[in-house]
């Protein structure tokens, strides 16, 4: 399934909606969107991922990139990730650095 990402910024909260498969061939699309929202210095980043069906380590590296680009104080929320993606976040320890929520705002 192709990967798409769309973004919007409201009240300094960047919301990105990720759909499809995020792998090493599509990660650059996500990276470009992070760079685009970073210009507006958001204070929080919300990733809507309920329709993200696959995420490889290339996607995790983009989350690291977002933290580096936006600053460590910027909190990252992942809204409704699928179980298999939660497994990957758990295995790699990323679960400690992002907030997994059912909805945002909580």
């Amino acid at each position: 399934m192709n990967f798409t990402v769309t973004s919007e910024i409201n009240n300094k909260v960047a919301t990105l909606t990720l759909v499809g498969s995020l792998d090493s061939s599509s990660a650059f699309v996500f990276q470009e969107e992070i760079q685009k929202v970073a210009v507006q210095s958001p204070v929080e980043m919300v990733l809507r991922v309920s329709e993200l069906s696959f995420m490889a380590s290339a996607g995790l590296r983009m989350i690291v990139f977002a933290k580096q680009k936006l600053g460590s104080q910027v909190q990252i929320y992942m809204v409704s990730p699928q179980d298999q993606i939660i497994d990957t976040l758990q295995m790699t320890g990323f679960i400690h650095s992002v907030h997994i929520v059912d909805k945002y705002p909580e």
């Binding site: 490889a56 380590s57 989350i63 690291v64 460590s72 295995m91 790699t92 400690h96």
Partner: peptide, 23 residues
Amino acid sequence: EDLNIPLEERPIGGLGVMIARQS
């Protein structure tokens, strides 16, 4: 210990191999 390092301070490599071996 590496997995508890804050994301922004993490080295970028090695994740893919780790995921592959553990999956």
